[in-house]
């Protein structure tokens, strides 16, 4: 038998739930209303990706340049980096001012960020973000 622990308070998630519901309604309503009240004229030019823009070259279903993968990987790295900053940020604001821990915690976090800046500078110099 599995007992599920209840978190005591959910009231502070209510804004998040409202946001989710609003986003869902907005997306679904746009799709439905476009189908219902939008004009549906068909044609060769109407069917292109950008009706009054540039003509598309080839199809979208082709292989992408491998450079985008490196950019995605870099994004993931900084994503993980940011995750570690959330606990730091939430503890930093609740440190007592007279405890003397504030500069220590700031320094430890700055060291953490410094490594990512070094990584970013290295990647920049090696041309990870260049597209030529």
């Amino acid at each position: 038998m599995l007992t599920l622990a209840t978190a005591s308070e959910f009231s502070h998630y209510v804004p998040l739930a409202v946001l989710l519901v609003m986003a869902l309604i907005f997306g679904v309503a746009n799709l439905v209303l476009t189908h219902v009240i939008g004009p549906s004229r068909k044609g060769k030019v109407k069917g292109t990706t950008y009706e009054s823009g540039v003509n598309p070259i080839g199809t979208a279903r082709r292989r992408f340049n491998v450079r985008f993968y490196i950019v995605a990987m870099t994004f993931l790295l900084f994503d993980v980096e940011i995750v570690f900053l959330y606990p730091w940020a939430s503890v930093f604001s609740s440190l007592a001012e007279d405890s003397g821990l504030t500069p220590v915690f700031l320094g430890r976090c700055l060291f953490f960020i410094l490594t990512s800046i070094i990584a970013f500078a290295y990647a920049w110099r090696k041309g990870v973000f260049r597209y030529d």
Binding site: R67, I70, M73, T74, L77, V80, E81, F84, R108, F111, F112, T115, S116, I118, A119, F120, Y122, A123, R125, K126, G127, V128
Partner: peptide, 18 residues
């Protein structure tokens, strides 16, 4: 801090591959 260094190593690896 080791997590930070590991992230640094991964980034350097990506740069090396590029």
């Amino acid at each position: 801090e080791v997590a930070a260094v590991i992230l640094l190593i991964v980034m350097i690896g990506a740069g090396y591959l590029v």
